[in-house]
């Protein structure tokens, strides 16, 4: 498992080291909390690891009605950005649930997104928030919506030699994240449900996404459509729960049975909607 470890100081140098034709491939290294154990366990055999730690990617910025989160910004720094708690309360509560504090000091948002773990606690809220990604390679930049970026469990449209420069999230957006685990902390969620509210959609102001699915975390558009207004009636909420439970393929594995996951999906969706409605009330007047 010998490999070279590089610390490029410029994008040009990084892209040269990440040569898409190289064999075995060089892999970009951000926090390494997922990649390094995988390399150690022999699941990946990189030709080299290219650390992104010296590139100017650990940034955070508010630009108009978006926050721009640099690809290598550690989660711990992100969760401490006052703007996150204030403008994206649902994302903030998911951030505080990732692994442990020491892990979040290293783990990055870009890393979490490109790994595309089916059990990620960050992808459901980012999907519900309609996040998009700025990707950069030696050929230039492209922007892609997260929903199109994710292709399956551990699978994305990221090209070799391409890096996540920024994650863009529209603000402010009331939202919430509800999850269930066997052990409350330092564990993988069996199901996680994120909801968020947007202001400009004739169909529904609700955005709903969940993890714990048979494949990667996904939007639940059927459930969204059952909620035509910001403050749904109990009947509408039950209809959304019904559609979510019926229209979703869920995982059945050692962490939870399919039946229990389906039960949880309904319980957590109901709780998340209720919480988001309350947050929307308290955020009134500050929304775009």
């Amino acid at each position: 498992m010998a490999y070279a470890l590089h610390f490029p100081r410029s994008f040009e140098e990084a892209f040269r080291l990440l040569d898409p034709q190289g064999q075995p491939p060089a892999l970009p290294l951000a926090g390494g909390t997922d990649l390094l154990p995988a390399v150690e366990a022999g699941r990946w055999h990189p030709g080299a690891l290219v650390s992104l730690s010296r590139l100017p990617l650990a940034t955070f910025e508010r630009a108009g009605d978006e926050v721009l989160i640099g690809g290598t910004l550690p989660l711990r720094r992100l969760e401490r950005e006052p703007a996150i708690g204030e403008l994206l309360p649902g994302f903030a509560e998911a951030l505080r649930e990732v692994g442990s504090v020491p892990l979040r000091h290293r783990a990055t948002l870009g890393g979490n997104v490109v790994r595309a773990s089916p059990a990620s606690d960050l992808l459901p809220p980012l999907l519900a928030l309609e996040a998009s990604l700025d990707l950069r390679s030696q050929h230039g930049r492209r922007r892609v919506a997260l929903v199109d970026f994710l292709r399956g469990s551990w699978e994305t449209t990221l090209q070799r030699g391409e890096l996540v420069e920024r994650i863009r999230v529209p603000v402010p957006r009331p939202g919430s994240y509800r999850w269930q685990r066997v052990r409350p902390a330092n564990d993988i969620s069996q199901v996680g449900v994120a909801t968020a509210l947007v202001t400009s959609d004739a169909r529904s102001p609700w955005r709903i996404a969940a993890g714990g699915m048979e494949s990667h975390p996904q939007r639940l558009s059927g459930a969204e459509a059952a909620l035509p207004q910001e403050d749904p009636s109990p009947g509408e909420i039950e209809e959304a729960v019904h559609r979510a439970r019926e229209g979703t393929r869920l995982k059945d594995d050692r962490r939870a049975g399919e039946e229990y996951r389906r039960h949880l999906l309904g319980v957590l969706l109901r709780r998340s909607i209720t919480s988001t409605v309350e947050r929307a009330r308290s955020m009134k007047g500050r929304r775009t």
């Binding site: 066997v182 409350p184 902390a185 564990d187 993988i188």
Partner: peptide, 15 residues
């Protein structure tokens, strides 16, 4: 199926 500290869940300091 769970020979490791991720899925064999011993209590942590927060438990």
């Amino acid at each position: 199926a769970n020979p490791g500290l991720l899925d064999y869940r011993i209590p942590t300091l927060s438990d």
